[in-house]
Amino acid sequence: ETEYTFDDKREADRAAKEAQNNGLRVHVTKDGNRWKVRID
């Protein structure tokens, strides 16, 4: 399990989409004014 934090939602969405394309499970959550992408 890996977690990334992004300031920009577009960057978070791009990272999530890339991980999904690689067959990974992805969870995107909002943390204040930042975005967390957790990859299982």
Score class of each variant (00 low, 15 high):
N33D: 14
N33F: 05
E11M: 10
F6S: 02
V26F: 02
Y4D: 04
I39L: 07
K30L: 06
G23A: 02
D31I: 10
V28P: 01
R38T: 14
D31P: 01
R34S: 07
K9N: 03
A19V: 03
L24V: 06
D13E: 13
I39G: 02
T2S: 11
R38H: 14
T29C: 14
D7Y: 08
A12G: 01
D8Q: 06
R10S: 15
K17E: 11
W35H: 04
T2A: 11
D8A: 05
R14T: 08
W35V: 04
D40M: 15
D8S: 14
R10W: 15
N21S: 13
E11P: 02
A15P: 01
A16I: 12
T29Y: 10
T2Y: 15
R14F: 09
G32W: 00
Y4L: 14
I39S: 02
L24W: 08
R10Y: 13
D31W: 02
G32D: 06
D40P: 04
Y4H: 08
G23M: 03
R38I: 15
D13T: 09
R38Y: 10
A12F: 01
N22F: 01
F6K: 01
G32M: 01
K9I: 10
R25Y: 06
K17R: 14
R25F: 06
Q20L: 14
D8K: 06
D8R: 04
G23K: 03
A19F: 15
G23I: 01
R34Q: 11
N33H: 07
N33W: 03
A16W: 04
Y4A: 06
R38Q: 09
T5G: 05
R34G: 07
G32A: 02
R10M: 13
L24N: 07
D8M: 03
A12E: 00
R34H: 10
E1G: 13
E18G: 05
E11Q: 09
E1N: 11
W35G: 03
K9H: 09
A12P: 01
R10V: 13
Q20F: 11
E18Y: 04
K36E: 06
A16H: 03
A19Y: 10
R38V: 15
R34T: 04
K36R: 12
E11R: 04
W35R: 03
D7G: 07
D8P: 00
A16T: 05
R34N: 08
N21P: 00
K36W: 03
